[in-house]
Simulated assay, not measured.
Amino acid sequence: MKILVTGAAGFIGAHTTLRLLRDGHEVVGLDNFNSYYDPQLKLDRVRWIESQGYRFPLRRLDLCDATGLQRLFAAVRPQVVIHLAAQAGVRYSLENPQAYLQSNLAGFLNVLEACRRQPPEHLVYASSSSVYGANQRVPYGVRDNTDHPLSLYAASKKANELMAHSYSHLYAIPCTGLRFFTVYGPWGRPDMSPVLFAQAICRGEPLKLFNHGQHQRDFTYIDDIVESLLRLLDQPPRGNPQWDRLQPDPASSMAPWRLFNIGGQRPVALKDYVSLLERLLGRKAQLELLPLQQGDVLDTCADASDLAQVTGFSPRVELAEGMRRFIDWYQSYYQPEIARARA
C-alpha cells in the first residue's frame, strides 16, 4: 500500500516507517523536526532507517500548514494515513499549552480536512492512555469513562478521538484510534523515563521519583506497538451494526470508527523499574522522592482484549528483555565508549 506517515522521524514513527518499508509498502513521511527535543535525534533516526538499506521521501512540513498538507495529500494520494505527529509530553503541557492547541488540535483538524478532500481507505491515529485521567479503575478498558483528563495533553488526545468520530460520521472516513501505554525502546524520546532515568543513574545525579515512586506503569515495547498497528492497517472499521443509541458503546460507533488500547498489560512499580535499570547499568540510583506531580495519573494498566480479538496479537515483550535492548541502544548512542569496551 501507499502509506503516509506523519511524525515519521519521531520515536514510534521511525520504527513504524522501517517496518512498513521492510514489509514492502511505499512510504511517504512527514515531520516538522521541531525543537521540543534536539532535532539531531530525529535526523539520526532517519539515518538509522537508511542504514538498514531503505530510503523514503520525507517532507519537512508542519501540520499547521493546511495548504501544504492539502498539496501533499493531493500529490501522494495515500491509501492509508498513519498519524503519529503530535506535541507530546504531559508535563510540557503545563508550561506551553499553546503548542498543544496548535499541533494536536489545529494540526489534527488539518489532517482530517486533508482526508476529507483526499479520502484514504483508513486513517489510523495515535491517542494515549493519558485520556483515562482521574479514572482509577484498572485495567483501563476502552469502554471506561474518559471525561476527566488531568492534563491538557490528555484533553487534546481525547479531543482527537471526538474529532475523528465527527469526520468519520460526516464523511465516512474509516478511523482507528490507538491508545498507547508508556512506549519504550531503542531511539526513545529523551524526555521519557528510560532515557531520563538512565542518564541520572549513569551521571550519579538525583533521580526524581514523583509520588514517592508509588506509581505503576504499563510499559509497552516499541516492537509490540508497531506489530499491533500494522495488524490493524488492513482492517478499517465499517461501523458497528449492533451499536445502540440508547446504550452507546464508547469504543465503536454506527460510523466507521473505533478505539483500541495497546499496552503490555503487566504494570510495574516505578521502584522495581528503577531496580531493573540499576542491574542493567551496574550502578545504583540516587533517588529523590517527591510528591505527586500535577497532570500525572496514579497507575496505568491496559485491557487490550479488543486488540487481541481483532488481530490475534497481544504485546508480548517482557520488560526485562525490552529494557535490555533499550540499554544496549542507549549505550551505543549516548555512551559509545562503553559499548566499544563491551564489544
Rank of each mutant, 00 (worst) to 15 (best):
M1Q: 06
T6I: 09
G10L: 06
F11T: 00
F11D: 01
I12H: 00
R19I: 04
E26L: 07
V27N: 12
G29W: 03
D31S: 06
F33L: 13
N34H: 11
N34S: 14
P39T: 06
L43P: 00
D44N: 09
R45E: 00
W48N: 04
E50V: 08
R60T: 15
L61H: 10
D62Y: 08
D65Y: 02
D65N: 09
A66C: 10
Q70P: 00
L72Y: 01
F73H: 07
P78Q: 08
I82D: 01
I82W: 03
A86I: 04
A88Q: 11
A88K: 04
S93F: 13
E95W: 10
Y100W: 09
Q102M: 14
L105Q: 13
F108P: 07
L109A: 13
L109D: 12
V111A: 13
E113P: 01
A114H: 05
C115K: 05
R116S: 01
P120Q: 05
G133L: 07
V138R: 15
G141D: 14
N145Y: 10
T146R: 12
P149H: 10
L150V: 11
S156E: 08
S156T: 15
K158H: 12
K158L: 15
A159C: 11
N160P: 00
N160T: 08
N160F: 00
E161Q: 05
L162K: 07
M163S: 13
Y167R: 05
L170W: 10
Y171M: 01
Y171R: 05
Y171Q: 05
Y171V: 05
A172N: 15
A172F: 08
I173A: 11
P174M: 11
T176E: 04
G177F: 10
Y184P: 01
Y184C: 07
R189T: 12
M192G: 09
S193H: 07
P194S: 07
F197Q: 07
A198E: 09
Q199S: 13
I201Y: 08
P206F: 05
L209Q: 03
H212W: 15
Q214Y: 09
Q216N: 03
F219E: 10
I222S: 05
I222E: 07
L233A: 04
P236M: 10
N240T: 03
Q242K: 12
L246H: 14
Q247L: 11
M254E: 14
W257G: 08
Q265T: 07
Q265K: 03
P267K: 01
L270Y: 11
D272K: 12
Y273H: 11
S275R: 15
S275I: 06
L276N: 00
L277P: 03
L277E: 07
R279E: 13
L281N: 06
G282R: 03
G282T: 02
L289R: 02
Q293K: 13
C301F: 02
D303T: 05
A304R: 01
A304W: 00
D306W: 04
L307E: 01
T311I: 08
F313C: 04
G322D: 00
G322N: 02
F326M: 06
D328M: 03
W329K: 04
Q331A: 06
Q331G: 04
Q331D: 12
Q331M: 13
P336V: 02
P336Y: 04
E337G: 01
E337A: 15
A341M: 14
A343S: 14
A343M: 09
